[in-house]
Structure formats: structure tokens, C-alpha cells
Write a protein that binds this DNA or RNA. Structure first.
Lengths: 143, 143
DNA sequence: TTGCTTGCAAATGATTTGCACTGCT
DNA sequence: AGCAGTGCAAATCATTTGCAAGCAA
């Protein structure tokens, strides 16, 4: 059992949930992909899963802080492993084909951004949990 | 006729579309609100509009670059005037009540971010059109 | 046994679309 | 007249949910 699976198992147990075979398949499929995937893509990677179970399990995994759900206006939502399992990153979103690709920013930029956000959020009385940067445009294949 | 209406009219004409009373009502409602609004909110501001017409007109306005549509996972999408009509800004998204609030970052931070993004995007062959920063958490009312 | 999980089929609900009608131009 | 815009009702489609059966503790 890999370290990833151990962490997932732990978080599910903490919420009195079992780490079933279906859930393991979902986590494997998400870990295998380089970026966020849609439900149809996910089902293609784990053909034995029922669609409704996939949705249900993704929502359990999301509540347990294992999976993050992204919505960018395309038909389907995208799913990826939570940042604390894979590392902080952001997304390039193709406005034509809807694909989503990960990227990271240098520590310097992230830090100055964090500081600016801290100030702002304090002034507004907003309790920030995380931030996301999306870059919209055309991916290499579409442009 | 205000400057805003003049600009909208111009962009619609450029696409052979008319600036009708319904569309004007939508633009007024969006301009009157401080942040992005959902369709139900919009309809409340312009009760004589049919729901389907509101959706149809918003999509026309979006294609003409007058309106921007935001999707953040809540039930409804949010709509706001395009940034080149109102100025560059970002969003605080409340994870409990789903409300969305605008904010701006200092020029220094925006600039260092722009530079980082330029480099990145060039390396990936991605044609960037715009970026968005979303901060997720709990708004002042919900926390 | 008890209760979490699953798969199937049916429901939900935001958004889109067909169609007939109204109103610019 | 000719065609864009509108409202109503019906369709679409991702996602959610009810329910009966399977399975782990």
C-alpha cells in the first residue's frame, strides 16, 4: 500500500468511512492522470464503476478533503486529488476544448500574492481557506 | 444615454445585434450591483424579463464581450459586466452561502503575477487571454 | 445483525431550445 | 416584407437520489 493510499485511508477512517475497492480505483485513476479529469474520463479509467457510485464516492472523497472538484463552465466538472496530497498548483483552462492543465508559480510570486491576499482578506472580514489562479485562453493544440 | 450604454450599443452593433430594452435592463441591473449576480437575482431586478430571454440575452452579451459568466460550483452561474467595462478585479467566494464579492490587488502584485504568467504560458505554448484569482472561504456573514 | 456501499432506474433542476408571435428597420 | 427578439412550454443533460440487494465489521 503506497503512502498516498495510507493517507486516504486515514482521512476516510477519521470520518467513519471505509476505503473500499471503488474508492481506491477512483484515487488511483486521479493519481495516474497528470491533471484534473472529468467524470467520463474517470469512468473510462475504471470501467467497472457505476456512474452514480462514482459521483457519490467523489463527493465523499471531497468532503474528506481528499478530492477537489473544479468547475470552469464546461459541461462537466473536473476532479483532482487535493492540493495537500499533490502540491499547490494552478490551472490553464482552454476556452475551446475545455481541457485543464496544471502549472505552478515560483515561490517568490506565491509569497507576495499570499501577503496581498492576507491583507485584503483581513480588511474584509473574510476567512480565506485557499486560493486558485485560473488562466483562460487556448491550449497548444487549439491555437 | 450614459457612456456605458454607448459602449454596449457599439459592441452589439459590431455584431449586428440590437440594443433592445431587455438587454438594456440586463446591463442596468448588472451595473447597479456591486458584484456578480445570479440569474434569479437578475430577474428580481428586472421582473418584466422572461427567464429564457434573460439567458438568451446574457449569452448574446457574453459573446459580444460585454458580460462575463462565472461558474464556481454553486447552483447558479454568476454574471457581471466584462472587465474592460468595469476594471480588472478578482473574487472572494463564500463556500457556505455561495455569494461572490469583488476585490482588487495592488498594481505591484498584479504586475509580478503577469510577468510570471507570461513566462509560463510561453513555455507551454498556451495563448493566454485573461486570468482570474478566486479566494475561497467564509464571508463575513457566514463565519 | 447493523449499517455503510453499490447499481439501477427515476427524479431534479439549471440551462437550452422549438415555435409562434411581436416589433424593429 | 423580412428578419431579429421575445415568451411560453417542452426538451436536455449533468448530477442527485430512492430503493433493494451486497458486503464488511
Amino acid at each position: 500500500m503506497t503512502d498516498l493510499h495510507r493517507q486516504v485511508d486515514e482521512r476516510l477512517r477519521a470520518r467513519d468511512q471505509r476505503y473500499t475497492e471503488s474508492r481506491r480505483q477512483i484515487v488511483d485513476a486521479l493519481a495516474a492522470n497528470s491533471g484534473p479529469v472529468t467524470l467520463p474520463t474517470l469512468l473510462a479509467s475504471a470501467p467497472s464503476l457505476a456512474q452514480s457510485s462514482a459521483y457519490r464516492n467523489l463527493s465523499v472523497l471531497e468532503e474528506a478533503g481528499i478530492v477537489r472538484r473544479l468547475v470552469h463552465g464546461a459541461d462537466h466538472a473536473f476532479y483532482e486529488l487535493a492540493e495537500d496530497l499533490t502540491g499547490h498548483h494552478h490551472h490553464l483552462v482552454c476556452e475551446r476544448c475545455g481541457s485543464v492543465q496544471d502549472f505552478t508559480l515560483g515561490a517568490r510570486v506565491e509569497q507576495s500574492l499570499d501577503e496581498a491576499i492576507d491583507d485584503l482578506v483581513r480588511a474584509k472580514g473574510f476567512a480565506a481557506r485557499h486560493h486558485a489562479i485560473d488562466i483562460f485562453g487556448l491550449c497548444a493544440d487549439c491555437s
